[in-house]
């Protein structure tokens, strides 16, 4: 994780996302107009969040199998970065909704599901903080992390599809795929997903290393 090539790639991708996402020509769709640029900054947050939650759950499972505290460091920090992305996703979404739907909160099923997801992971943080023993905190945190993820998946992928959503592409609203998202948008959208996700992983790995350094310092202090 200490190699630098992927950090350079992150910066390059994000610079590209910022410049191309804000300046490039975009298709004019009714209602959406220029706000379609939110695709690169709002929608990508969700992709980044889901990918990092998957990583977090993966390390939680690994922790339960190995009981190695290093896996728990990865799980909590990736969950933390995912929560940051989730909050940013909700805030950017609310700003966008104000200009397209007219309200910060319109009770859209995807909005509600995202808010519930955030509640779930805040509860995860509180649960961890309520436990004092490191190994027990790691174990019970991992169990709740996996359990919450199992409930989170139907929440965001299944339920919003059962009712009409105001989101572009749902319920007759002009969407990206419906009008054939032209390849120009895709050229920014996909790199943006990779760029934001890599930025989140970068934040998470830096914090994991800080955690490990702190643990070693603590051990040294106790043993000296």
């Amino acid at each position: 994780m200490r190699q630098s090539w992927w950090k350079i790639l992150t910066i390059a991708l994000l610079l590209y996302t910022l410049i191309a996402g804000l300046l490039m020509d975009v298709p004019r769709l009714p209602i959406l107009n220029e706000t379609i640029r939110a695709l690169h900054f709002h929608v990508t947050m969700w992709f980044g969040m889901i990918l990092m939650l998957v990583v977090s759950v993966f390390y939680s499972i690994k922790y339960l199998r190995t009981n190695d505290i290093k896996n728990d460091d990865m799980a909590i920090e990736f969950a933390g970065a995912a929560i940051l992305f989730g909050v940013l996703g909700i805030v950017t979404g609310m700003l966008w909704a104000k200009f397209t739907w007219g309200d910060y909160w319109s009770g859209d099923p995807k909005q509600n599901a995202a808010a519930i997801g955030i509640l779930m992971y805040f509860a995860y943080l509180i649960l961890r903080n309520s436990l004092t023993d490191t190994q027990q905190r790691a174990r019970i945190g991992a169990i709740y992390n996996i359990f919450a993820f199992a409930a989170f998946i139907p929440l965001i992928f299944v339920l919003p599809r059962l009712t009409d959503s105001l989101h572009p592409g749902n319920g007759g609203n002009p969407g990206f795929n419906a009008y054939d998202l032209d390849s120009k948008l895709r050229m920014v959208f996909y790199p943006a997903i990779i760029g934001w996700t890599l930025l989140g992983s970068w934040i998470a790995t830096v914090r994991v290393r800080m955690r490990r350094v702190e643990r070693i310092l603590e051990d040294r202090m106790i043993n000296s």
Binding site: I116, M120, A123, I126, L127, S130, L131, I143, F147, A148
Partner: peptide, 21 residues
């Protein structure tokens, strides 16, 4: 899970509500 964490009622509520929604 809540019983392992000193099982207070608040924890039970905040852990279960989002999962049950």
């Amino acid at each position: 899970i809540a019983s392992k964490a000193g099982n207070n009622a608040t924890l039970m509520a905040i852990l279960s509500f989002p999962v049950i929604i």
